[in-house]
Nucleic acid binder design. Structure first.
Lengths: 135, 135
DNA sequence: GCTTGACCTTCCCACGATGGGAAGGTCGAC
DNA sequence: GTCGACCTTCCCATCGTGGGAAGGTCAAGC
């Protein structure tokens, strides 16, 4: 099938499919005489794997490693688990960050009248010489 | 003072100070005869404001709006609050996303032996034809 | 006054992931 | 044959934060 069909069936855009091929995440596709890329059901399956991993927030580098492990019958699940754990740790770190940000924003918004007056605790806090309240 | 000192005192790198000037977030700095940028205490204060807003995750475009409001004695706090609320909404959306990702990852990791065997629920789930479990 | 290391300037490129769009070729239904 | 949909490659962009090259400036120390 052509790239458009592969894109539709996998959920990965044609643009990204070409890009993934260019960065080596995918092997070069088979081509017709006129240069059109040809994809098999197996290729669509790989693309779907990539899409799923992306939706879990894995980086392209991680996904490359995961695809390689998937392709290797001799892999150890320890390696997979290690990759997933490192990613989970990063997700947790980002969650903590956003929670702190959320808390500060929520507090600032609560104390802001939000009317026509110019005084505003949000601006005052941003302009204050000390660091933002972190808790 | 020179840009290095302004960077040190504001917590914003010299690179970013130059960048912010180039994108119009900062007005062009005064210059010496030899072309060195000169910054006042007031400039450092603005940079500090920018740094604080960045640490709260506001985009450069939002920060530009916030700085303009800060500079405008006739601003309404409603406008400030609206910007902050929109940003908080975006933070909340991202938090929800990461939480869902975390949950899925956590579940997959829990069911993975993480040993030398090749069978792995993480890879199996990524390769499965249906969408990832979302709850 | 000269030396030299730190600092400054502009410019170009890069990162990561996902595009938009231009220019030109191919395909297949009608 | 026509024509709209699809395909190709190539170049650029987004967003925020850099690295580094090439060359100029500053001022402490000798």
């Amino acid at each position: 099938m052509n790239i458009g069909t592969a894109a539709e069936r996998s959920g990965v855009s044609a643009k990204m499919i070409r890009h993934y091929e260019s960065i080596g995440l995918l092997p070069p596709a088979a081509r017709t005489e006129s240069g059109y890329r040809q994809y098999s059901d197996r290729d669509v399956h790989v693309l779907h794997f990539i899409k799923q991993a992306r939706s879990l927030g894995f980086s392209i580098a991680d996904i490359k490693a995961l695809v390689d492990l998937w392709r290797n019958p001799r892999r150890s699940s320890a390696r997979v688990k290690s990759l997933a754990q490192a990613h989970l740790d990063a997700v947790d770190a980002r969650l903590a960050e956003l929670k702190a940000i959320r808390k500060t924003l929520q507090n600032l918004i609560t104390h802001c009248h939000g009317d026509e007056r110019p005084d505003c605790p949000i601006l005052d806090t941003l302009a204050a010489p000390n660091e933002l309240p972190r808790q």
